[in-house]
Computed example of a mutant assay.
Amino acid sequence: MFNSENSNQDANIPTFPYDYGPDSFVIDLNKAAQQNDNFRSTLWTGTHLQVTLMNIPVHESIGMESHPDHDQILRIEEGLGLIQLGEDKFSMYGQYLAFANYAIFVPAGIWHNIVNIGNSPLKISSFYAPPNYAWNTVQRTRTSDSTLQNSF
């Protein structure tokens, strides 16, 4: 899992994607994000925080959204994104370029979107406080009608 050099350590880890919360957990987040092929996968869900991984295809986006009761941090792990932020979905007050290792801090209620403007998939890790999705949610594509939940 995650191309670890120590295969003995990974022998008991479930197949990715898998939600490892709410137990304590240590992982190379960048490597996990790079290996995620789903639009969205929850990686860790706790009582007060959640980490999801996103894979945005070339020329696609996360979609304009706002979370009225959730603060969010998004981190670009790989690729090039156009960040759009605004008070409502019709007036974006800011547009920014973001590359690997950039973080986007989005307070509750702010509309936001990230568009993949690069030539390869945009890999993102996203942190929600409090959690925004059910434990072990996997959404294969953005246009999926509902999220899938794996049972392990």
Results as ranks from 00 to 15, higher is better:
residue 57 P to N: 04
residue 74 L to F: 09
residue 62 I to F: 07
residue 48 H to C: 08
residue 73 I to P: 01
residue 44 W to G: 05
residue 77 E to V: 11
residue 71 D to G: 04
residue 75 R to I: 13
residue 77 E to S: 13
residue 45 T to I: 02
residue 71 D to C: 04
residue 39 F to W: 13
residue 39 F to Q: 05
residue 64 M to L: 15
residue 43 L to G: 04
residue 43 L to W: 01
residue 42 T to P: 11
residue 72 Q to R: 10
residue 74 L to W: 08
residue 60 E to G: 04
residue 53 L to S: 09
residue 49 L to E: 11
residue 69 D to F: 14
residue 61 S to K: 13
residue 72 Q to A: 11
residue 77 E to I: 13
residue 66 S to P: 11
residue 51 V to L: 06
residue 56 I to N: 03
residue 68 P to Y: 02
residue 62 I to D: 02
residue 48 H to G: 11
residue 51 V to I: 08
residue 66 S to H: 10
residue 51 V to F: 02
residue 59 H to E: 07
residue 40 R to Y: 00
residue 48 H to A: 13
residue 49 L to I: 14
residue 44 W to M: 07
residue 51 V to M: 10
residue 48 H to R: 14
residue 72 Q to F: 03
residue 66 S to D: 12
residue 46 G to S: 10
residue 58 V to D: 02
residue 67 H to A: 03
residue 68 P to Q: 03
residue 61 S to A: 12
residue 59 H to M: 03
residue 64 M to K: 14
residue 63 G to Y: 12
residue 56 I to D: 03
residue 74 L to C: 06
residue 72 Q to K: 10
residue 50 Q to L: 01
residue 61 S to G: 07
residue 54 M to F: 14
residue 65 E to S: 13
residue 47 T to Y: 09
residue 62 I to N: 05
residue 56 I to E: 01
residue 64 M to R: 14
residue 52 T to Y: 00
residue 48 H to V: 03
residue 54 M to K: 14
residue 74 L to H: 06
residue 43 L to I: 09
residue 62 I to E: 06
residue 73 I to A: 02
residue 62 I to K: 06
residue 65 E to K: 13
residue 57 P to D: 05
residue 75 R to C: 11
residue 61 S to L: 01
residue 50 Q to H: 00
residue 44 W to Y: 08
residue 69 D to Y: 13
residue 44 W to K: 06
residue 69 D to S: 15
residue 38 N to L: 14
residue 58 V to F: 05
residue 55 N to K: 12
residue 60 E to D: 11
residue 66 S to C: 15
residue 42 T to H: 08
residue 60 E to T: 12
residue 60 E to F: 04
residue 67 H to S: 07
residue 54 M to H: 15
residue 70 H to M: 05
residue 48 H to K: 15
residue 55 N to W: 10
residue 56 I to L: 04
residue 47 T to N: 13
residue 58 V to L: 05
residue 57 P to T: 02
residue 59 H to D: 05
residue 45 T to N: 01
residue 44 W to S: 01
residue 63 G to K: 13
residue 49 L to M: 15
residue 52 T to L: 07
residue 42 T to D: 06
residue 53 L to P: 07
residue 41 S to G: 10
residue 51 V to E: 00
residue 51 V to D: 00
residue 39 F to C: 04
residue 64 M to N: 11
residue 68 P to S: 03
residue 53 L to W: 07
residue 48 H to I: 03
residue 51 V to Q: 00
residue 63 G to P: 12
residue 45 T to C: 02
residue 69 D to N: 15
